[in-house]
């Protein structure tokens, strides 16, 4: 007996929940063969606004966790991703990847999470400093998470690009709102399902689907967003992002030249892109002044 195919509606991920878009709009991306992939939420600025509220309220808890605990959670994400490898390979193939490429992409994505899990409690030492000063102060500089980061994921590497952007941001204690690839959004929503079952607190990562053309300006001029990451080599959009992000002096980084499959696709400097260096002056007794010495 013939049966009707059930096409999954891919919902968005905000504050640890899977709501539909408030706008009630959907779109259906197709692959090269013209096959409809799924029904996907076409998010509006209000979904983004809600996601930022979630990200901001999750920031306090996430940033104040022990770095080691963040490391454990990133590792757990990698474990959960490993367990659902087959589903990701299937989705990547639906989105026009070859099997060999799909297998390579998911493996690299898992490895990348492990890589940044390792860095969670180590980059601070590398980028901190005790500074020599001329007064009787103990003076030190340490990196601290900047806050909420808005990420416009690359259109191409739908899974690896997404993971390579999210992992360093949350490893450093930030929270984020991500706009998934418009043409290849399936892995992003499935990745949200992985996040939801991996001890990551709700609101730390929020994933939206929709059209960058509609949402880029909202992603970059929201006053409660502290940094923006963008991956396409589109100079008009890059100019727009630079202008809009001036509203509250966001950190802006363009990763249009990064090859996520190469060794340069992972580095602690990606973590530092969403960190701020804070310097503290702590008064100490003037040992040298008292004639002592070491």
């Amino acid at each position: 007996m013939p049966r009707l195919e059930v096409l999954k509606t891919y919902k968005i991920y905000i504050g640890g929940q899977f709501p539909r878009t408030e706008s009630g709009r959907y779109y259906s991306p197709v692959n090269k063969a013209g096959k409809k992939l799924a029904n996907v939420c076409l998010c509006s600025r209000k979904d983004f606004r809600d996601a930022v509220v979630s990200a901001r309220s999750a920031f306090g808890g996430w940033s104040s966790r022990a770095a080691f605990n963040r490391s454990q959670i990133l590792y757990r994400m990698a474990e959960m991703l490993e367990g659902r490898k087959a589903q990701f390979i299937d989705e990547l193939i639906q989105q026009d990847a070859t099997r060999a490429h799909a297998e390579k992409e998911i493996s690299l994505a898992i490895d990348r999470l492990i890589y940044y899990a390792g860095w969670c409690d180590k980059f601070q030492q590398l980028f901190s400093a005790v500074n020599p000063v001329a007064s009787s102060h103990f003076n030190f500089s340490v990196p601290e998470p900047t806050g909420v980061v808005s990420i416009i994921a690359p259109q191409g590497d739908a899974l690896l690009g997404l993971v390579s952007l999210i992992a360093p941001v949350i490893a450093g204690g930030n929270t984020c709102v991500v706009l998934a690839s418009e043409t290849k959004p399936l892995c992003a929503v499935t990745f949200a399902e992985v996040l939801n079952s991996s001890d990551l607190p709700g609101g730390v990562v929020n994933i939206l689907t929709g059209k960058p053309a509609e949402l880029v300006s909202w992603f970059t001029d929201h006053m409660d967003v502290n940094a923006t990451l963008y991956c396409e080599n589109n100079s008009d959009v890059q100019k727009l992002i630079r202008e809009k992000s001036a509203s509250n002096l966001k950190r802006v980084h363009f990763y249009d030249k990064v090859n996520w499959y190469s060794a340069e696709g992972q580095s602690p400097y990606f973590i530092m892109d969403s960190q701020e260096i804070k310097t503290t002056w702590h008064p100490v007794e003037n040992i040298a002044g008292a004639g002592g010495g070491y």
């Binding site: 606004r49 930022v52 901001r56 909202w218 001029d221 929201h222 006053m223 409660d224 509203s247 509250n248």
Partner: peptide, 8 residues
């Protein structure tokens, strides 16, 4: 026209 942040 800009969404606002509490710390302002």
């Amino acid at each position: 026209g800009l969404y606002q942040a509490g710390n302002y």
